[in-house]
Amino acid sequence: MLEARLVQGGMLKKVVDAVKDLVTEANIDVSSSGFQLQAMDTSHVSLIAMHLRSDAFEHFRCDRAMSMGMSLANLAKVLKCAGNDDIVTLKANDDGDTVTFMFESPKEDRVSDFELKLMDIDSEHLGIPDTDYCATVTMPSGEYARICKDLSSIGDTVVISATKDGVKFTTSGDVGTANVTVRQNTTADKKEDQTIIDLKEPVALTFALRYLTSFAKATPLATHVTLSMTRELPVMVEYAIQDMGFLRFYLAPKIED
């Protein structure tokens, strides 16, 4: 039996909204460590890995590990019916084919419940290796979203290069070319505006902009996003889910044959 009560139910809405356009259906794996989701987009170019730890929940009981297959569009429909400040409780039986969501308003004057049908989903589980990244950039998530949006209007592909001078995003298209350089800024008055660059070795990688832009749908989750890069390996784009877990996107690079 599963019972999980999340006081910040709005967090769940933000996670699902961030991934539902990339992945149509996914297994949500529930165990004593919490909720985990790993899924590839339909083109198998990017991978989503989410972990919401059990200690994020006010109450968490999971007697037996289970995998709940869901249509993320349907899950988003259900969560859309929750208020942003609602407390969300999930309940499921070990061998059931449904999961129940209960939404409670903060003032406890409105309670609703929705039963969502589960589905069997065959999914490959990928092993994500531990990586020593050459460059790690932590920047305001809004800035990352803006760069992706701006460059998408010029080109389809971006080269992200990290050097001691900063991190440069370059694209080109029919219109011409565009460069945006982000430099370290640890002296900004507001912590939300700070950018931290940890460079071990210079690195440059090429990516499809439309995936990087899609990842930016997670912007409401966190003030900052972290981009981690190593030569000829997927970039990791990570949004922290407060101190409750993380939402990570991995994107395979484009490489010269």
Binding site: E124, H125, L126, A208, L233, P234, A252, K254, I255, E256
Partner: peptide, 14 residues
């Protein structure tokens, strides 16, 4: 033009 790689080329199935 650089070619798009699949994520499965980097992360093996476990």
């Amino acid at each position: 033009k650089p070619g798009q790689r699949s994520i499965t080329a980097f992360f093996g199935t476990s």
